[in-house]
């Protein structure tokens, strides 16, 4: 089975170190969730994994091959894509233009158009809005654009940085269901999430980071057993402790 792994990654911005020897392993066909308080290095971890920032030390491997020093367009070619926080859509490009950008590295225009058509079949709402500037769409639609755009290259691993940020509870459910569906199709999904209870329903594997270090690693069942962790880092369960 295909895997992407981070080993002992250290990274930061300027002189400020954010990640301290963080490791993560994600497999194709699974949903791997990353939790942790704000500022604990989750986004930095994903960026370092795709080569958007260069880690100070540590390695990233894809199926055992070292991809640490590859730039993001090269990891993209190898099937590892990152959807940045808030989707990273281009607000003044139309929906179609946004999707085209998703396939920027494709050589064949015909191939690109076919894939865009496929995605518009999968996201009928986007077909209706294809000529509209993405910035004027609703939050949920913008996220749909971002997800569709990330799928265009049919990545083997898709790293989502808070795909449900700012969405209504119903849409959060939709996004998580879509992530689970992607995993069923064989994609390895790595997801930073704040909606912990909902995410635990779809996650196969979970990581908790705290202050730039690995704090926990295991299945959703494992984490439910760790009451201290649930309470301290994830803010869950203090009240429920008495009742269960």
């Amino acid at each position: 089975m295909s895997t992407i792994e981070a080993h002992d990654l250290a990274a930061g911005y300027g002189r400020v170190q954010i990640l301290h020897d963080v490791s993560l392993r994600a497999a194709a066909g699974e949903v791997t969730c990353v939790f942790g308080p704000n500022g604990c290095g989750k986004s930095t971890l994903l960026k370092a994994m795709v080569g958007a920032i260069r880690p100070w030390s540590g390695t990233v491997t894809l199926d055992g091959e070292d991809i640490t020093s590859l730039a993001s367009h090269e990891t993209l070619r190898r099937g590892v894509a990152l959807m940045p926080q808030n989707g990273g859509i281009f607000p003044e490009l139309t929906v179609i233009e946004n999707l085209r950008m998703g396939g920027y590295i494709l050589k064949s225009r015909k191939d690109l158009n076919e894939r865009i058509e496929e995605l518009l079949d999968e996201f009928p709402r986007l077909r209706e809005r294809r000529g509209v500037n993405a910035g004027s769409l609703s939050g949920g639609e913008q996220m749909m654009v971002a997800i569709a755009r990330a799928l265009l290259l049919r990545p083997q691993f898709l790293l989502f940085d808070e795909p449900s940020a700012g969405l209504s509870p119903k849409l959060v459910g939709d996004v998580l269901k879509r992530a689970a569906a992607l995993a069923e199709r064989g994609v390895g999904v790595v997801m930073i999430e704040q909606n912990i209870r909902e995410a635990m329903q779809v996650a196969d594997r979970m990581y908790v980071l705290a202050a730039g270090r690995n704090r926990f690693e295991g299945t959703p069942a494992d984490i439910s057993d760790d009451r201290e962790l649930m309470h301290l880092y994830l803010g869950i369960g203090k009240r429920e402790e008495g009742t269960t």
Partner: peptide, 23 residues
């Protein structure tokens, strides 16, 4: 043009354009 599209994308969101494979 494809490059023109990339130029407009870079003007709007550099980080995201970089993630799409734009130099």
């Amino acid at each position: 043009t494809r490059t023109g599209l990339a130029v407009r994308a870079v003007a709007q969101n550099k980080e995201s354009a970089g993630l799409m494979g734009v130099d």
